[in-house]
């Protein structure tokens, strides 16, 4: 027997490479294309929002954990950075910095740490922060700088604001204008794909979001279940309405490319902490979120409903987990 003490533990004796850090930083990498696209269309303003959002999130997490909860801060695991970026992605690039701070405080302090930190929060923290800001500061949260105008400018002129494509449509439909009329003023499908539209920092470029989403799928950080069922449901439902009344409803592709749907489908609905644990549950979760999104978009007061849809579905995740258990191997029915 050797002099040194042998370590003894239960099997397994080897460990996979995945860690919370690798997952979180993987998500950060996947969000970079969207961030770059946003910086291209909105200039420094977009970067500023995201950077401040990240800084606030990390600092709040550190301070609260260290001095309020008196536990070892878990800033290093990268989850606060992800929350920060996601929160920034959900804000207009013209938002005042102190509001970003308020949003980050709500996201980290209330939505995440008051429930027990990473892994225990029932709601997606970034979305809670965003919704808090949206209902508290509706004006600031819905004035979107026009993309191409601001590209070359370093400061954010308050005057140059426009509506999001969805906002335009909602307004037009409310006035009773036919879709074809509205679409003349709204950005084209192609604009929406690349990102030359008004909207939150992270949601503008559909292409960049898809690239990021594919990266997440490739890295096996997320599975296909939630994005596909989410996007699929939206396509199907908006498609049905479009086929029935094409003069009143916009086509499904436009729905998919605009607003926060892609951001939500790939980055927010797939947040592991707040999504179901079984494949079937994930499909149900995605479909439910998609359905609620479309209902809000077509019939609700807000032009956009991804945030609310995901938060509502977050709330019923515990029920989904009970209802949709994974299929057991060799399960014996009734006994």
């Amino acid at each position: 027997m050797g002099q040194s003490q042998l370590i003894i533990s239960h099997s397994p004796h080897i460990k996979g490479k995945d860690s919370i850090e690798s997952i979180m930083y993987g998500v950060v990498i996947a969000m970079l294309p969207a961030l770059m696209a946003s910086a291209w269309f909105y200039g420094i303003g977009a970067l500023k929002v995201v950077i401040f959002s990240v800084i606030f999130s990390v600092i709040f997490e550190f301070l609260i954990q260290k001095y309020l909860l008196k536990i070892e801060p878990t800033v290093k695991d990268g989850s606060a950075i992800v929350t920060g970026i996601l929160l920034g992605f959900n804000l207009p690039s013209s938002l005042p910095i102190w509001m970003i701070g308020v949003g980050a405080l709500v996201a980290i302090g209330i939505a995440k740490l008051s429930f027990g930190g990473l892994g225990k929060n029932p709601f997606n923290p970034a979305l809670v922060g965003r919704v808090f800001l949206l209902v508290s500061f509706p004006v600031e949260m819905t004035s979107w700088p026009r993309p191409l105008d601001t590209r070359t400018m370093l400061s954010i002129p308050d005057a140059l604001t426009g509506a999001t494509p969805l906002g335009l449509i909602k307004e037009g439909v409310a006035k009773g204008e036919p879709i074809a009329e509205i679409m003349k003023n709204a950005p084209s499908h192609l604009d929406a794909l690349f990102g030359a539209i008004g909207g939150s920092v992270g949601e503008v470029s559909a292409l960049a979001l898809i690239v990021g989403g594919l990266y997440l799928l490739y890295k096996k950080i997320i599975t296909w279940h939630i994005p596909i069922s989410f996007l699929g449901t939206i396509a199907i439902f908006s498609g049905v309405f479009w086929l029935i009344q094409p003069e009143k409803y916009v086509d499904p592709l436009y729905h998919l490319l605009t607003g926060g749907i892609l951001l939500g489908a790939f980055f927010m609905a797939t947040d592991m902490v707040t999504s179901p644990m079984s494949k079937l549950g994930m499909l149900f979760f995605g479909a439910g979120a998609g359905l609620i999104t479309i209902l809000i978009r077509l019939f609700g007061a807000y032009p956009e409903g991804v945030s609310f849809a995901i938060l509502i579905m977050n709330a019923i995740v515990p029920l989904i987990n009970i209802a949709f258990k994974p299929k057991r191997f060799g399960e014996v029915k009734n006994g």
Partner: peptide, 8 residues
């Protein structure tokens, strides 16, 4: 005295 180191 301990002969092994438990890990778990």
């Amino acid at each position: 005295p301990a002969k092994n180191q438990f890990d778990g």
